[in-house]
């Protein structure tokens, strides 16, 4: 692009015949348009959704499982301790407890990395599918900033939805896991709610952030696309 004229999205001073308007869409319409995109491209959206839901479920289940086991161990009457020992899930010495934690963190990081690449790839594909649409938008007067906004909001929706559904699923999984490895009777309603309150926001927040982060590169590709590409009849 012209280095003399950096990308400007706000109104500016100065003359020039072409400076009277501001081709920017209101937030409300942008939101509606993003939502329509998510809803109408269910196939492609679903892949992103699934990706983030899996990683969110994985986080939530291991997080809540750990929390619940810890809660049971703290209460530790004879019956509970026996159940813990039987299942072999409670480490006696701090060293092996630390090792277990490290392993979980490592697994988590790995799955996040795999998931982020997958999501980025899916979004990149949906960008190439929509070359013409993006080109048409630009021909209608959309600035790069608008394209960025559109794609990021779309993936914000997907990320929030996917991680929320995933978190819920993981939560149920954690309860079942504790129930089957130990005993359902040992799970208290209080600890259940506490780990939901602690883990839920982390899962949804981090999941959404992860999706948006994975969307940054594809969005950049989309925004930098030239409107000429829409004019090309063959894709």
């Amino acid at each position: 692009m012209n280095p003399r004229c950096p990308e400007i999205t706000g109104p500016r001073d100065g003359g020039g015949a072409a400076r009277r308007g501001r081709p920017i869409l209101s937030w409300r319409r942008t939101l509606r348009m993003s939502w329509a995109n998510v809803r109408n491209r269910l196939g492609r959206s679903f892949l992103t959704f699934l990706g983030i839901a899996v990683v969110s479920a994985f986080f939530m289940s291991s997080f809540c499982y750990q929390r619940m086991v810890d809660a049971i161990a703290v209460g530790a009457d004879v019956h509970a301790r026996a159940a813990l020992e039987r299942a072999g899930v409670f480490a006696h010495d701090p060293e092996s407890a630390q090792r277990q934690r490290d392993r979980r963190v490592w697994l988590m990081a790995l799955s996040v990395a795999v998931c982020a690449t997958g999501i980025a790839n899916t979004i990149l594909m949906s960008v190439t599918e929509r070359v013409r649409e993006i080109g048409a938008l630009k021909c209608l007067g959309a600035l790069d900033g608008f394209i960025v906004r559109l794609f990021l909001i779309e993936n914000l929706f997907l990320g929030a939805l996917g991680s929320a559904v995933g978190a819920l699923f993981g939560y149920i999984l954690a309860i079942l896991q504790v129930g089957f490895t130990l005993e359902f009777g040992l799970i208290s309603a209080g600890s259940c709610l506490r780990c939901l309150a602690a883990g839920g926001p982390i899962a949804v927040g981090a999941g959404t952030a992860l999706t948006v982060a994975a969307a940054i590169y594809p969005t950049y590709v989309a925004a930098k696309m030239k409107p000429v590409d829409a004019m090309r009849s063959e894709v």
Partner: peptide, 25 residues
């Protein structure tokens, strides 16, 4: 500059394509 070009495309020119390029959603 890009901003002015966008303005131009928006107000001055109407584009019609061979492949229609209507926003599908």
């Amino acid at each position: 500059d890009p901003f002015e070009l966008a303005w131009l495309r928006c107000r001055k020119i109407g584009y019609i394509f061979q492949t229609f390029n209507i926003i599908p959603v």
